[in-house]
C-alpha cells in the first residue's frame, strides 16, 4: 500500500481550499443548528460571518483596525532596526557575538506580553508601550535571521570578486549585502506574522479599549455579544493571513533568485 503521495496541482489545491473552508463552516453550522453539539457561546458560522460583514462596514471598527496596524508597523520598525543591527553585528564579529549571546538567551524566553504591564508603568499610556511590546516579540526572529544573514555569503563569491579586483566596499555592497538581504527579510516576514498577533493580544491585556484587541475586550464584557468577539478575532486572523501572503509574495518578487540556490 502506498502511504506517500504525489503533490496536487496548484489549481486543484485552491479549489479544494475554498471547498474546505466552506465545507467546515457548513458542518459546524449544521452541528449547532441541529443541536448535535449544544452549549452557550458556540460560534454559529452564519452569525459570525454576518457580524464580520457588519464590522467591516463600520467606520469606527475601521479606525480600530488602523490603530492596530499603525501600532504593529511601529513595533515592527523598531524591531527591524534593533534586530538587523544587533544580529548583523553578532553575525559579523565573534566578539560582539560573545558579548550578547548569553544576554539574548536570557531575555528571549521572557514572554513579551508579561513585560507589557511594566512598560505601561514606565512609558505611560498610549500606543508606545503597545508598540514596544510588539517590538520585543518581533526582535528575536529578525535578530537570529540577521545573524545567519551576516554569515550567509559564499566564500567562493568573495574570492571570485577579489580575483575580479572588486574593492572592499564593492564586496560589501554588491556581494555581502545582497547575499544577506533574503535572510533578513525572512526574519522580518516571520516577525510580521507574530507581531500582529502580539499587537492584538497586547491591546487586549494592557490597552484601554483601543485597537482590535480593545474592541474584543469591550465586546467580551457582555456574554450576549460573543458573536462580535468571534467576528473581530476572525477579522484579525484573516488580516494575519493577508499579511503573511503579502510578505510571501514580496519575498518571491524581491528574492526569487535565491530559490535557485535551495538544495
Amino acid at each position: 500500500m502506498q502511504l506517500i503521495h504525489e503533490p496536487l496541482s496548484r489549481r486543484s489545491e485552491v479549489v479544494l481550499g475554498v471547498a474546505g473552508v466552506l465545507g467546515s463552516a457548513l458542518v459546524l453550522e449544521l452541528l449547532i443548528r441541529l443541536e448535535i453539539v449544544t452549549g452557550s457561546g458556540l460560534p454559529l458560522p452564519s452569525a459570525v460571518a454576518d457580524q464580520a460583514r457588519g464590522l467591516l462596514g463600520d467606520v469606527d471598527f475601521w479606525s480600530q483596525i488602523l490603530y492596530t496596524l499603525r501600532e504593529w508597523m511601529l513595533g515592527l520598525a523598531i524591531a527591524s532596526v534593533a534586530g538587523v543591527v544587533l544580529g548583523g553585528l553578532m553575525g559579523a564579529s565573534r566578539t560582539v557575538f560573545k558579548l550578547f549571546a548569553l544576554t539574548v538567551e536570557i531575555l528571549r524566553p521572557l514572554p513579551a506580553i508579561a513585560v507589557g504591564p511594566l512598560l505601561v508603568l514606565l512609558i505611560g499610556d498610549g500606543m508606545l508601550p503597545l508598540a514596544v511590546t510588539v517590538a520585543i516579540a518581533c526582535t528575536w526572529p529578525i535578530l537570529f535571521n540577521s545573524m545567519y544573514a551576516a554569515k550567509a555569503v559564499d566564500p567562493v563569491a568573495i574570492q571570485t570578486a577579489r580575483t575580479l579586483h572588486v574593492s572592499p566596499l564593492g564586496i560589501l555592497t554588491r556581494i555581502r549585502l545582497p547575499a544577506a538581504l533574503p535572510f533578513m527579510f525572512t526574519g522580518i516576514r516571520v516577525a510580521a506574522s507574530i507581531g500582529l498577533i502580539v499587537a492584538v493580544s497586547a491591546e487586549l491585556l494592557l490597552g484601554n479599549g483601543v485597537g482590535i484587541g480593545g474592541y474584543i475586550l469591550l465586546a467580551s464584557t457582555s456574554a450576549s455579544n460573543l458573536d462580535a468577539v468571534y467576528a473581530a478575532t476572525l477579522v484579525a486572523g484573516v488580516m494575519g493571513v493577508l499579511v503573511s501572503v503579502l510578505f510571501a509574495v514580496a519575498d518571491r518578487l524581491l528574492f526569487g533568485w535565491k530559490a535557485g540556490l535551495a538544495p
Binding site: 474546505g20 500582529l196 493580544s201 487586549l204 473581530a232 476572525l234 494575519g240
Partner: peptide, 25 residues
C-alpha cells in the same frame, strides 16, 4: 489542500482574544 487555509487562519488568530469564550465554553 482542504484544510490548508484553515491551518493558516489558525496560525494567525490572536488566541488570547478567545480567553473569555473558552471560559464560557
Amino acid at each position: 489542500a482542504l484544510f490548508q487555509p484553515l491551518v493558516h487562519l489558525g496560525r494567525s488568530l490572536p488566541t488570547p482574544a478567545l480567553i473569555g469564550v473558552f471560559f464560557l465554553l
